[in-house]
Design a protein around this nucleic acid. Structure first.
Lengths: 181, 181
DNA sequence: GCTTCGAAGTTTAGCTCTGAAGTCTTACGA
DNA sequence: TCGTAAGACTTCAGAGCTAAACTTCGAAGC
């Protein structure tokens, strides 16, 4: 038994290892959970590459996404952005600093209420977001191409049901993780 | 239009916003992708809370998991661990430093080949992993309790199919992200 | 046997995030 | 109208990561 160049166990190997080390586990449940987690990681790698090709970081893409999806006039405060992206206001301050320097957004004091700050997307930022969306939508369609209409429908419905259950179970946890929708 | 306390748009609102801002998008595809991403985030928050309750970080849990799943004698080198967890060798060095200090693993030079280092789980580390697994398996079973056997079967199969497609499409990307299986 | 190359880990510099403390503005009550 | 409190954002210190330089050991060639 020399050195095996095993980079990462396959999903099947991993399930088998779980069975070996922890019998109280339903293999079917573990199959779903493992595949879900790993699929998500792989997709994030793909998104990362796509945004990088546009000279964009995933962090910046998230901010642009939140601004666009907020609707016209495409403005939000740092605090509101931080809540939507699931990070602290401090982190938001730094992200905005960088994005202002790159011309993706502007930051101004709200003259009507000088405590507030307004972050607004620039035309350049909007264009970048569109480019990223075009790449993402192609990738997503390719990803799902093996699923027929009925399967897609069912998958969307089941995932939404699971999501609802998790959200009901955790009113609003203290844990914070990056946004990745 | 005063201040709305909107913390995070619902999945349905988000799909609607996508339709409004980017018509080239299949709502069904977006439903799947958004629900997938958000579900994963929520699950990670739950795992985070569970491991924190055991005085463990998610990072430490990942290392313990890799060691246990590698099978007896539950040893791996730092480089191998880094590959399996999807992070750099440098990060692995630091993680192991902390975990050795906490008594979760041991680190020794391989006397047969003094370039190599052997990281091995301690009985305390193994016990912690078991505690974490018990919590996780209860949570996972609760999460899926609304799905009947047929649905679980189908979901596992479909997710595995998607995973295979992503892995085939990206031989071995340069992007690195945290492991979260 | 010495030298050179390559592989495995560690160290260093720099970045981004969190949590806590600090600043500034507005709102409210005496 | 003045002082105090509350809210929004920023600043600061510290944790954990990446990329790249560095160190050490073992293997191959001359």
């Amino acid at each position: 038994m020399a050195d095996t160049p095993d980079a990462e166990p396959s999903i099947e190997e991993q399930i088998a290892a779980y069975q070996r080390e922890f019998q109280d586990l339903d293999p079917q449940v573990e199959q779903i959970v493992s595949a879900l987690g790993r699929l998500n990681r792989r997709m994030n790698v793909a998104y990362n590459r796509q945004t990088a090709a546009l000279d964009l970081t995933n962090a910046e893409w998230e901010v642009l996404k939140a601004l666009v999806l907020s609707g016209a006039p495409y403005r939000l405060g740092p605090g509101e952005l931080a809540r939507r992206l699931g990070l602290t206001p401090a982190a938001m301050t730094h992200r905005i600093d960088r994005m202002v320097a790159e011309g993706l957004v502007t930051r101004d004091r709200d003259e009507a209420n000088r405590v507030r700050v307004i972050v607004e997307i620039t035309p350049e930022g909007r264009e970048k977001w569109l480019d990223a969306m075009r790449l993402a939508s192609v990738f997503e369609e390719e990803l799902l191409q093996d699923l027929d209409g009925g399967e897609r429908n069912k998958l969307g419905e089941v995932l939404t049901r699971l999501l609802r259950r998790v959200e009901d179970a955790q009113p609003d946890a203290e844990g914070r993780l990056a946004d990745l929708d």
